[in-house]
Amino acid sequence: MAEVTTSVWATGQQPSRVQRKGRYVRESMRHPGKMLPSIAARVIETYTEPGELVVDPMCGIGTTLVEAAHLGRHAAGVEYEEKWARLAVANLGHARQQGATGFGRVMAGDSRHIARLLPDLLGRAALVLTSPPYGAATHGHIRSTRDTGEPGVRKWNQRYSADRENLAHQQLPHLLEGFGRILDGCAELLRPGGVAAITVRPYRVRGELVDLPGHVHQLAEKAGLVFADRIVCLLCGLGDGRLLNRASFFQLHEARKAWARGTPIHAIAHEDLLVFRRLPSASATGQADVWPMHARRRSGQYSQAPLIPGDGQ
């Protein structure tokens, strides 16, 4: 297994849309909070070996699962919103058509109960890779006056969900309580010595910086996971001795307004990757370093074209 040799990864050399073009189905762009494929691939390649199991409890359109499949790992994901779960299935099928050798499984459900949703995977995962939501509405896609010549800003694809039970709708205390429950369950899915990697960045509410990485760090340790590393995953590009800006319109807009008020804030240009390990100990489920896919194919939940259990196909 590769060792981390630096605390900074240049994962923003290409914009997200370029990283996804042709690798994901076009409808994937509707999701407002996608993980950067280059981050997912780098984490999976660093912390797992081919044939091992990767789990994402909040898988969205399946970025973690797709990158795992392309790298010859097997993957399981849970997604609260069925519309995103179905897109994750479509992206896994697309990956198989492109030659990905890993298998994937997607379940639509509430990951606050993930240990009950995936009881057959307890103690088997080599890696849990995920990211928490940042609120009910994100920036999504926008057209500003600069683009249209018309006053105002038009937004679309900026919402995770209309379901008020979705964690994305919760205020910070409830969001953290729910994400803590998810991490508790994920700790049960990890094999001894397995890795939990969480990508998260601070964000601003009415100009105030919310230290979401710090909160997540505390939640992971409360779940019994041991802190192993912090890696800065650049969202900007590096080239010709300068940074290539990838900040969104709203990030730059908020920074400019703050500077005009005399508050010199800067646009965030990185994700924190927080890495934790489950302490090595005897596993209640026995040794299972490699996911025995063929032993479970009879259930219908694993296949060449992965399905959402219960979708009738």
Rank of each mutant, 00 (worst) to 15 (best):
K21E: 02
A100D: 04
A284G: 15
S28T: 14
R116S: 06
I61F: 05
I61M: 13
V66I: 09
D120H: 15
A95V: 02
Y24T: 03
H139F: 10
A295D: 03
R30A: 12
E81R: 09
P280T: 04
F250I: 10
P37Y: 02
S283Q: 03
L273P: 08
P173M: 13
A269D: 14
P213T: 05
L175F: 01
P133D: 01
T130E: 05
A95F: 01
W84L: 11
P133T: 10
S161Q: 13
H217P: 04
D311N: 15
V205C: 04
R86G: 13
G62V: 10
R143P: 00
T63D: 03
N91R: 05
A223P: 02
I308Y: 00
L243E: 06
L129C: 09
L175D: 11
H113E: 05
L307K: 04
D272A: 14
L129N: 06
E150R: 14
G152C: 08
V8C: 11
A269N: 11
R112L: 06
T63E: 01
G51V: 01
T138S: 08
V195G: 03
M35Y: 03
W9G: 12
R154H: 09
H294A: 11
E79G: 08
G193K: 10
I265M: 06
S131N: 01
A305V: 07
Q98H: 00
N91I: 05
R42Q: 12
T101M: 01
G286Q: 10
T6Q: 11
A126G: 09
S7D: 15
I198Q: 00
Y134A: 01
G109M: 05
M35A: 08
R242Q: 08
L92V: 09
A187D: 14
W84V: 14
A137C: 01
K83T: 13
S248C: 10
N245T: 12
E271V: 14
T263Q: 12
I268T: 11
